[in-house]
Design a protein around this nucleic acid. Structure first.
Lengths: 385, 385
DNA sequence: GGGAATTAGTAAACTGCCCAGCGATATCCA
DNA sequence: TGGATATCGCTGGGCAGTTTACTAATTCCC
């Protein structure tokens, strides 16, 4: 811990930041309210917030509703539109890009389909087109983006590559960060999709109240993302949560139990087959119920390993199959009870397929915050890393 | 993040703390050196360090060796003896108590044997006697101790109980924190022994350079402790790392392969049996080698699960069997290679059976540091939580 | 409608802290 | 003994936040 000395100017910066933090996420606030939140005196807040206004970080909200006694106070709000962030989900079947302001309010979302067999160059071209469409529709340029995160499948190493393995054809050689660095000057993060989905669940999903979360991606692929002490865990090589690679954990084969269920229409694609089985199980089809039981049995081994390793507060069931949580949740819970010392709460994701892009937004916003905390905040422009 | 406003007095406290941090762990320092380390000006450091001296946190080191040109500078040192911490290991066969000063320098260690079958009351009585002996020998009283940590077997919940399970007879009902709170007024932590050993390895052991560590306790019992991002992970219920509870992970049975090896002397106690097998394997005994192979095969499944779940940088092999690392390490590494995506480095603990008490010391010292950071530091007395 | 009550905005004086700079001091070395 | 070098101790200046007091703008209530 290299606690470093402080002087007056740094103190002023810190107080200014504390006012930014007190403004953000709150309705337009009076100087008195800000003084209460920050612990500073009213005159101090006054001069600091006025500096924020002249720098463009804050704006005066004119009177509005006046229903209290005394002189009506000026209200200040954080100018969340001073900067923006992008969350980009490069999936197998789609590219999804979300744009938010500095407070995390969604400004615009653009989705484009992607060919599952597209090579990396074609896929990145689709990403570029999607970003083009979104920026044009929002009336922005690359320089308005202060940070962005790309979500991809497979474990991501420190350089932003997915060298170990990935279901995207040829993607091991792709360098999305390098590609996007060609047009964006802001910091670019690349992260595994499960990890981003986990972040999203804690931000806007069903796990907002928990600090220790295992996110389970249950779909055609199976994966996991871990949040411990409120922070995303990447692991030393970015491969945390890849428990599916263990042979004793039958995650690779687990979805096969669904596809192999007798009665599945021969023409069904993988995702459709699973949906068919879940629906059949719902209607009482014995063979479908067996298939689901086998699936959850295999799924549970890996989940139990993660639960025992990490002792989380909540396990979030996400991914495509979470739409059929009504069928999966009970058998999964029964299986987990067999394995675990202490059963964490099981919850079902409600974010749908936007979770990866959403988590990417959160990570980009966190990065912007960190840069604001370390660097001085001058006029609102992207604080450089 | 509730960044709160700062005023002058708080700034002074922070600067004073930054000087404490700059003094600590360094040889006696001149004002100029401290100014360089903290980024503060010389006069500021001067007045702050003098305040530290009058408060008893620092002391002047008189001249000493003078081999430089110019007027010799006064040298100040941190008074590490202003307070002390205890690390207490309540094991099955022994009670070990270690005393250190605020810099973590070991002052004294006392060890007493314990009856493996002793009930909690008798075991706590042994703990008390050990502490008595140590305090008397060090010429201290309970009030000189600013923080202490107790290491016990089994997962420890938030209340300091080991309610889930423990190899110590009757220990599930024991309340070591409550017992010690009777004589110590300082904060008392209770923690799982594997977790403390992991902390010790990062502090003074073989994993000082790593932030993501899996500590493997390999002995008559098998267990694990996790350090991620440089911090001990307890899990929401304190049961992180208890992967051995998974049936697919054969940790409970693994040591059995050693005890069941043909040729083990019938009279041997569990630990001696294992030592015999390792020695026999070293001498080329085929059956012993098979037993070791089986042991490491079972051990590796759980380790692989932890490695895949967390993607650590280093796996530390500790516990009683780590004395035979020369025999275990190679087969373990071979087994792990089969299971893992990316093999972390395997290292063998060198701390012996002091690691639990040592880790307890570190945790107690960390707690003291945190209290110093949050509270103001007046005269040196235990900063209250 | 007008005064009391209440709350916000503003200006001044005050305190505390760090910094820059200067002369005094202590030691070494030629 | 005197010069070189580096620390020590002190003083004035600047800056940030607090306190205090006063003015301004409303609402409430008689």
């Amino acid at each position: 811990m290299a606690t470093t000395g402080t002087d007056l100017s740094r103190m002023r910066e810190m107080n200014q930041l504390s006012i930014v933090w007190a403004l953000r996420g709150n309705p337009p606030s009076t100087v008195t309210e800000l003084a209460g939140r920050t612990g500073l005196s009213r005159p101090a807040v006054d001069v600091l917030v006025q500096a924020l206004v002249t720098d463009g970080w804050a704006a005066v909200e004119e009177p509005g509703a006046k229903s209290v006694v005394g002189r009506p106070a000026r209200r200040y709000r954080f100018r969340a539109d001073a900067g923006h962030a992008l969350g980009i989900d490069i999936g197998v079947h789609k590219v999804l890009v979300m744009l938010s302001d500095l407070e995390g309010n969604l400004v615009r979302t653009v989705r484009r389909p992607a060919d599952p067999d597209a090579d990396p160059a074609a896929r990145l071209a689709t990403v570029d087109e999607t970003i083009d469409e979104l920026l044009a529709a929002a009336g922005m340029t690359e320089s308005d983006i202060w940070g962005l995160t790309v979500g991809v499948t497979g474990p991501v190493d420190a350089s932003g590559r997915t060298s170990l393995f990935t279901p995207l054809p040829g993607w091991g050689e792709a360098d999305p960060a390098g590609h996007l660095a060609g047009r964006f000057r802001c910091p670019i993060q690349v992260e595994n999709d499960c990890k981003l989905a986990a972040v999203a669940e804690r931000w806007k999903g069903v796990a907002q109240d928990a600090d220790d979360i295992v996110y389970l991606l249950a779909g055609i692929r199976t994966g996991a993302g871990l949040i411990l002490d409120g922070t995303l865990r990447r692991g030393h090589g970015g491969a945390a949560g890849e428990i599916g690679a263990l042979k004793a954990v039958r995650w690779l084969d687990a979805p096969g139990h669904l596809a192999a269920c007798p009665g599945v229409p021969a023409s069904a694609r993988p995702g459709e087959a699973a949906a068919w089985v879940f629906q059949a199980a719902r209607e009482g089809n014995r063979e479908a119920k067996t298939a689901v039981r086998r699936y959850t049995r295999d799924l549970a081994v890996g989940v139990a390993a993660l639960v025992l390793a990490l002792d989380p507060e909540i396990v979030v069931l996400g991914g495509g199959f979470s739409r059929s949580a009504d069928i999966i949740l009970d058998p999964l819970q029964r299986e987990l009870t067999k394995h675990c010392l202490r059963l964490p709460e099981l919850r079902t994701s409600t974010l749908g397929d936007e979770s990866v892009a959403l988590g990417g937004l959160r990570l980009a916003l966190d990065d912007i915050d960190n840069r604001m905390l370390s660097a001085e905040l001058a006029a609102p422009r992207a604080p450089r890393g």
